[in-house]
Design a protein around this nucleic acid. Structure first.
Length: 693
DNA sequence: TGGGGATTT
């Protein structure tokens, strides 16, 4: 460990336990009782969850109120049990029970769990709906889904009339989609449950809706206030369904004393970014080699989102007897990936945070900074220890530092680009400035997004949605990318633009960059690099991947051979196959959207590159810069001087003009996803000419 | 010369 970390004060926190004797701190007795009962049926386990005791009272409250806010920590069983209680109580007779989750994996695994508790198959009484995957049928009463999925349903059914109950889970995370849902639920409650109270007869005809908000942090009362204030929507705030208690004991230790002093169990260390992980990996390896004879061997495993899929197997592989796994992870291990066998968590208290700064002229800017985590994150990180037994969390900061942390993260709506959200709301006939949101974004962020939408042609000068804007909103893409797809129709290069845009819309990066293999990687990828820049390099890569093993695909029996040839190709070129697979699924969805919008997605421009770049430039008109006499690049719209990101194929190249996907400010303002474009292109862009309007 | 993490009929 770096000295700075090793000498910091640490705190010892007791974490949740399921069985066996706790290591240091006694586990509260009632938790013990709930967890120690030995092997039993899955239904029996459900009955023993802490929440089960409050079942009747809970159902009574939900029945009596339109909105119920439920505070309960992860593991209290609320997400799996509450929907079943409501089903049993007959609250799903007039419609579905929908439960939203911020993440796809959670929606799927919860549906699977609850299905088996109900003794049915997934897609029967209990189902789920996430992008690219839906298992729900006519018998489905309980549906787990991503919050994005329900937001999409809103566009087609503004009153969500299929649902009798909507449960918003993990509401404290305040994702953009959760916030948009909360605002719309308030509107729906007014419509479906009536403006005035006490007219019971009418109420039944109106198909009333029940809303349950679940939060894991103390700001739960804010949700209750949100629904009650102004509207007097009957809402109830129920406290503390605690599944675990986190107690703290001051504790100083050198970090690797865990390994020397503590019983077996893997160690999970939370760090801000890839750079920190790679440098600590070296230190830990060095430490491991200097261990006295007889000490167990240490296996160091890095973990961050851009790692290739093959690395993931190392994380989930069981630790051999007599060895100890030490996982160095970013925030990815906080919520999205659960690693079995972790008994000790070391929390540095830091994470990287992306924040969007709206620009008044030249689009926006993302900042990426290392910051202190929130108390909510700290508790989540601690909870990652001891999921299968007693566990411990060593916090590398003082209790005072913990108390100084923000209780929970600022809502996403306050720190992201609003262009896509505003466009979707306009399709619903809603104005973001009139919408009753829990937190209202800055007026600058709204004006900036409106300006972007205007430049893209989605809005006219009266802020009215144009037919082009409506067409853009029909794509599950950011407005800039949707604009590029639409532009590709007239430029006859839709196939190529879809290839590029689907990669840009994928969640992880296409290229894998290990610092220590830079020369090898450059050599392997040389044939893929296009001199016009990153967008056409992406296109080359997608095409080459598709071509690898394509011959075998003709024969059904050899399809497997084709798949393994592609996997091998991706590995050899340091390309993330997971990204390519995700992009393929996105592309298929985009083809459906194209057909609906009257765009022939098969139209290809072959090897011509100009139409592709011009289509992209229609979407990225605001993201353009010209070279200055001193060799730097200056934005066309906006005043920033931007530097081409070192990871770009255009780094160190001097061309007259560039377009880029985004600006990221770390130490300097870097343009990422850069292509060279002829200056004369801008003269042909209507958006560019309208920029002063 | 540098890359926290989710999500979309």
């Amino acid at each position: 460990m770096p000295a700075a970390v090793a000498t910091n004060k640490m705190r010892l926190f007791n974490s949740p336990a399921k069985h066996s004797t706790p290591l240091r701190k006694p586990i509260p007795k009632w938790v013990d009782k709930a967890r120690v009962s030995g092997p039993s049926s899955i239904q029996e386990q459900a009955r023993q969850l802490p929440i089960a005791k409050g079942k009747d009272a809970l159902v009574r409250e939900i029945r009596a109120n339109d909105v119920t806010v439920l505070l309960g920590e992860t593991g209290s069983g609320k997400t799996t049990q509450v929907p079943q209680y409501l089903l049993e109580a007959g609250l799903a007779e007039s419609g579905l029970i929908g439960i939203t989750q911020p993440r796809k994996v959670a929606a799927i695994s919860l549906a699977t769990r609850v299905s088996s508790e109900q003794g049915t198959f997934v897609g029967g009484r209990v189902g789920y709906a996430v992008r690219f995957d839906e298992k729900a049928g006519p018998d489905t009463r309980i549906k787990y889904m991503t919050d994005g999925m329900l937001t999409r349903e809103l566009l087609g059914d503004p009153l969500l009339s299929k649902y009798a109950v909507i449960v918003i889970d993990e509401a404290h995370e305040r994702t953009l989609r959760t916030d948009l849902l909360l605002a719309n639920l308030k509107r729906i409650l007014r419509k479906r449950n009536g403006d005035t109270r006490g007219k019971g007869k009418d109420k039944e005809k109106r198909n009333p809706l029940k809303v349950v908000i679940m939060s894991a942090t103390l700001d739960a009362e804010k949700f209750s206030q949100f629904f009650y204030k102004a509207d007097n929507i009957p809402s109830k705030y129920i406290t503390a369904l605690r599944a675990r208690r986190t107690t703290s004991t001051p504790h100083c230790a050198r970090s690797f004393q865990i390994h020397v002093d503590q019983p077996p169990g893997d160690v999970l260390i939370f760090l801000p970014g890839q750079e920190d992980i790679e440098s600590l990996e070296k230190s830990v390896d060095l430490f491991a080699r200097q261990l006295p004879i007889g000490q167990p061997e240490v296996i160091v495993v890095p973990m961050f989102a851009s790692l290739p899929g093959s690395q993931l197997q190392r994380i989930f592989a069981a630790t051999p007897r007599g060895k100890r796994k030490c996982i160095l992870a970013t925030n990815i291990a906080e919520t999205s990936i659960t690693i079995p066998g972790v008994r000790y968590v070391i929390d540095t208290g830091k994470s990287k945070e992306k924040r969007y700064l709206a620009g008044l002229t030249g689009g926006g800017l993302d900042t990426l900074m290392t910051r202190d985590i929130t108390q909510s994150s700290a508790m989540q990180r601690a909870g990652r220890a001891g999921r299968e037994g007693p566990g411990f969390c060593y916090r590398l900061y003082t209790e005072a530092a913990f108390n100084a942390m923000a209780p929970s993260a600022e809502p996403e709506i306050m720190r992201c680009s609003l262009a896509q959200a505003i466009l979707q709301l306009l399709c619903l006939g809603q104005d973001i400035q009139e919408l009753d949101l829990m937190d209202t974004p800055d007026v600058d962020a709204i004006s900036s997004a409106l300006r972007t939408l205007f430049l893209l042609g989605a809005l006219d000068s009266h802020r009215e949605l144009t037919p082009l804007g409506r067409a853009m909103a029909s794509f599950p893409l950011e407005p800039q990318h949707a604009r590029a797809v639409i532009a590709s129709k007239d430029l006859a290069c839709t196939a190529e633009v879809l290839d590029i845009v689907s990669i840009l819309a994928a969640s992880s990066k296409l290229f894998i960059d290990a610092t220590d293999k830079r020369a090898e990687i450059a050599e392997a990828r040389r044939a893929l690099v296009h001199r016009a820049g990153d967008h056409l390099t992406l296109l080359n890569t997608v095409r080459a991947y598709r071509a690898a093993g394509a011959d075998e695909d003709a024969d059904e029996n050899k399809e497997k051979v084709g798949r393994s040839a592609r996997r091998e190709w991706a590995r050899a070129h340091f390309v993330n196959e997971r990204t390519l697979k995700e992009a393929k699924a996105i592309r298929e969805q985009l083809c459906v959207s194209c057909t609906r919008a009257g765009i022939d997605w098969k139209t290809s421009c072959g090897e011509r590159e100009e139409p592709v770049l011009l289509s992209l430039a229609h979407g990225l008109a605001q993201n353009a810069a010209l070279i200055a006499p001193d060799g730097s690049y200056k934005q066309i719209m906006g005043q920033s001087v931007v530097k081409i990101h070192p990871g770009s194929s255009m780094a160190d190249r001097k061309v007259p003009a560039i377009i880029y996907d985004e600006l990221v400010y770390t130490n300097q303002i870097y343009a990422r996803g850069v292509s060279s474009i002829s200056k004369s292109f801008f003269a042909t862009l209507g958006a560019f000419n309208r920029r002063e309007v």
